[in-house]
Design a protein around this nucleic acid. Structure first.
Length: 458
RNA sequence: GUGGUUGUAGCUCAGUUGGUUAGAGCACUGGUUUGUGGUACCGGGGGUCGCGGGUUCGAAUCCCGUCAUCCACCCCA
């Protein structure tokens, strides 16, 4: 048998990593709940028809498909097989797939459970998703998304609320320098309408989205490759070059799209959101209107968001937007939704790189009893029971090993205190407490110990 | 899916124009210290050099294939 290993782009998580991951999840959950969102879960697998076609052509390719069980070959499309038609053949032997994100399953969930929920429905969902992408820095094939969404309201108050959630979560995680980028798909629609290329909305937005990566020239080159007319490119150029405050940008863009009804609507929405956020104030977040922000997911129709950690070379750590039509695909019309997603794994990488995890996360056990033999261990167990009854995380070394070995174990586990209970302590009913940081040792009774640990609790 | 990079000890890596028994640091382990870790000193274990084939008297080193990895593109959390 070869060395055991796990599939490409997946990971094992050791305890010292899990405590950090849980710190992120706990922070996110508590913020979500203070904004009035409640948890749901959906299955790991969805029917392929639920997922396919919702993420664009590229997305379909990246969906992990689950082979049918049993004698699937009997029911397979052999014609498609001999024709070398992979897609049609795959459809005949696959009817389930791993979820690609949490938003589309959520839309399905809302429609399916419409009679059990009240609108507007506010939910959060923290679960892994899978993408058959090639792994690289900050990109995994299995990763967690933490989604907050609300469906059943067109109110822009929710856009504001989600911006506040971005700010609150990331500020709570001690991130100092991050930017929330915001744009509105209606503005982009107005833009392509004004330049006379309405049918090329997607290729144009995808090209514009790459501005900060490939620069103005790169975008123009890509637009030409997508057969966008020269006159349209000329009209789009200001979008690529203008800069300044949110207000200045709004004014400039609003002039460009003024002849488009939908474009003007987008400007109005964005203006309202920006003004409200400005009057409420943000903690650490910077909020920037970025006319070149587009985002690849096809279902967005209104506001779109993306959050980047500054000074860290990793893609966006959060994203989201408003989708007016997602539930209609599943048969429920006129149900607007808006939501955002936190990329827990990327946030982890950012906090790790910036060394922002609290250091007390590393130790859970506060006190370890050294083991001096059977009698001593028996007494230590009694005292342990009492300490644990008071909620003090404590443990005992399992064997009467050499002190050096026991101490090394405590040291490696970052246990701050070791209790020494040997022959002498047993005789006078005391506990010698060693502080592993300073090396100081003092004698205590069990009562004093409980008081000591309750007092030093955070 | 396209292009490139790198595979040597548990981890990070060195290894000269191909030449005897493949090295270092960290980690692990034993001792100096049989009731004291984190610092010091001495010792020890651990490697089919990713895998398969080829060239050669001789391959970790050169060639071909393959798998894995990382990076860029595409796309995205």
């Amino acid at each position: 048998m070869s060395k055991p290993s796990i599939p490409k782009g997946t990971r094992d998580f050791l305890p010292q990593v899990m405590v950090k991951r849980n710190y992120i999840f706990d922070t996110i959950k508590s913020v979500f709940q203070t904004f009035g969102y409640l948890p749901i879960e959906t299955p790991t697998m969805e029917k392929t028809e639920t997922l396919m076609g919702k993420y664009g052509e590229e997305g379909d390719r990246l969906i992990f498909k689950v082979l049918n069980s049993g004698e699937f070959l009997n029911k397979s499309n052999k014609e498609a097989f001999t024709d070398n038609n992979s897609i049609r053949f795959a459809n005949s032997i696959v009817e389930k797939a791993l979820r690609y994100d949490l938003t589309v399953p959520f839309a399905r969930f809302v429609v399916q459970n419409r009679n059990e929920i009240d609108l507007p429905f506010k939910r959060y969902q923290i679960q892994p998703v899978w993408r058959a992408d090639r792994p690289q820095r900050g990109r995994y094939r299995e990763f967690y998304q933490c989604d907050v969404d609300v469906v059943g309201s067109e109110s822009l108050l929710y856009e504001v609320e989600l911006i506040q959630i971005f700010d609150k979560v990331l500020s709570s995680l001690k991130l100092e320098d991050f930017t929330i980028k915001i744009n509105n798909r209606k503005i982009l629609s107005g833009l392509v309408e004004v330049v006379g290329e309405s049918d090329k909305l997607i290729p144009i937005t995808v090209a514009i989205d790459k501005l900060d990566k490939i620069g103005e020239e790169g975008v123009v080159k890509e637009l030409r490759e997508k057969e966008v007319s020269e006159s349209a490119i000329e009209k789009l150029k200001p979008i690529l070059t203008i800069s300044g405050s949110n207000e200045n940008l709004l004014e400039a863009v609003s002039l460009i799209v003024s002849s488009s009804e939908i474009g003007v609507k987008g400007i109005e929405e964005l203006t309202e959101v920006l003004e409200m956020v400005k009057s409420l104030g943000l903690d650490k977040a910077k909020l920037e209107f970025d006319p070149s922000l587009a985002r690849g997911l096809n279902y967005y129709t209104g506001a779109i968001f993306e959050v980047k950690a500054n000074n860290v070379n990793i893609g966006s750590i959060c994203g989201g937007g408003r989708y007016d039509d997602l539930t209609s695909i599943f048969g429920m019309k006129d149900l607007s939704g808006v939501g955002v997603s936190f990329g827990a794994d990327r946030i982890f990488d950012v906090l790790e790189e910036l060394d922002l995890f609290p250091k007390e996360l590393l130790s859970s056990t506060q006190l370890m009893f050294a083991n001096f033999g059977k009698l001593e261990a028996k007494q230590s167990m009694k005292w342990l029971k009492e300490l644990r009854a008071h909620g003090i995380p404590s443990e005992i070394y399992p064997d009467n090993s050499k002190m050096k070995k026991q101490m090394t174990y405590a040291n490696n586990k970052n246990i701050p205190f070791v209790a020494l209970v040997g022959e002498n302590e047993l005789a006078n009913n005391s506990i010698t407490l060693k502080n592993m940081e300073t090396g100081d040792q003092n004698s205590y009774t069990i009562k004093e110990l409980v008081i000591f640990f309750n007092a030093t609790r955070f």
